[in-house]
């Protein structure tokens, strides 16, 4: 009985891992394709046949073979540890995401809280890697990243809180379930973003903040290649670097999926009962998340990046006051209606 439950647990743990791995491989390929198409190119075309779909697998094979270089004066323990912590943090957060109406890793009552808490570990691993590298560029990247992630957690949490106020639960499954069906008019889905006008503003703040949390352009300062070479990853090579890459893409997906749950109805079909069900639920959930990921990529290949002080200004002077104000307004709206 105990072994069975352990096996079940492992199985439940394995599914998100497989999803992450498959997603990351194809997201990296997809990002390159998106970049290619946006830039009037084709992107990878050679490995695997159709549009080079196996490019990431080839890259992974290459990375596995690469030498694992640790700088002479690096803090070897922390240097080795950092990628694992980073990946573990983003992986653990998948536990509370409701992938489908019948599948959730752990149906925690404090799911949102857990998710936000565990993703804070990311900044620790970034600092760890940057500090342990004993490289000035890495240190710069780490410091920038720490400041950025700590700052942007505030508007993220405030916008998430606004949703929680409307939904009335910290359990992501509950939040999703209450968005099922159609609204009173009968043709629009019952998504939270459509229920409250201020939640649209909350979503904008949320999206900007997750761009910053996931180190995406225009907030990719921690690894801005034209200034800091590669930021905190400068000294990493081979599989350790691949872990960072994996964690970064996993983080991107995680935050996008969170956005899908909170604002776009999670696994709910946009057509009411049509195309609904556990399997379809998984499809809709991933589709919504991946669309947000695509928008992140689209933004990345369009915009220049902010400067570090502008980033902070945007966060502390604009987004945080705005999110607080928005929070109050949403609460008022909820009280009135």
């Amino acid at each position: 009985m105990i072994t069975e439950s352990i096996l079940l647990l492992l199985l439940f743990a394995l599914i998100p891992l497989i999803i992450i791995l498959i997603y990351a491989l194809f997201a990296i390929w997809g990002e390159r394709k998106v970049a290619g198409f946006i830039q009037d190119r084709l992107g990878p075309m050679r490995v695997g046949g159709w549009h080079g779909w196996a490019q990431s697998f080839a890259d992974l094979l290459k990375l596995i073979q690469k030498e694992d270089i640790i700088p002479a004066n690096a803090d070897r323990f922390l240097f080795r540890l950092a990628p694992f912590i980073m990946f573990a943090a983003s992986y653990a957060a998948f536990a509370v995401l409701p992938f489908s109406s019948s599948f959730i890793g752990s149906n925690l009552d404090i799911g949102v809280f857990f998710l936000l808490a565990i993703t804070s570990l990311l900044s620790i691993s970034v600092i760890m890697g940057g500090w342990a590298s004993n490289n000035k560029w890495s240190l710069f990247g780490a410091m920038r990243s720490a400041a950025q992630m700590v700052s942007y957690e505030v508007p993220t949490i405030m916008s998430v809180l606004s949703v929680i106020v409307v939904a009335g639960s910290l359990n992501l499954m509950t939040v999703t379930e209450m968005q099922s069906g159609n609204d009173t008019l009968g043709f629009l889905p019952n998504w939270l973003i459509l229920q409250n006008p201020f939640l649209i503003i909350a979503f904008v703040i949320f999206f900007i903040s997750i761009l910053a949390e996931a180190h995406r352009v225009p907030f990719d300062l921690p690894e801005s290649e034209s200034e800091l070479v590669a930021g905190f990853q400068t000294e990493y090579s081979g599989m350790r670097w691949a872990m960072f890459m994996l964690a970064e893409y996993a983080d991107m997906l995680l935050l996008s999926l969170l956005g899908a749950v909170l604002f776009f109805g999670g696994w709910n079909s946009p057509f009411g009962d049509f195309m609904a069900g556990p399997a379809w639920g998984f499809f809709w959930f991933m589709l919504k998340g991946l669309l947000l990921v695509f928008v992140m990529m689209w933004i990345r290949w369009t915009l220049p990046r902010y400067r570090v002080d502008q980033l902070m200004y945007l966060c502390w002077s604009i987004l945080i006051p705005l999110s607080f104000l928005n929070f109050v307004l949403i609460a008022l709206w909820e009280m009135i209606f």
Partner: peptide, 16 residues
């Protein structure tokens, strides 16, 4: 110059 500031795509449009 755009590339230095993180804008990648304009660089390739101009290269075309």
């Amino acid at each position: 110059f755009g590339l230095d500031l993180g804008a990648f795509s304009p660089f390739l449009y101009l290269f075309t």
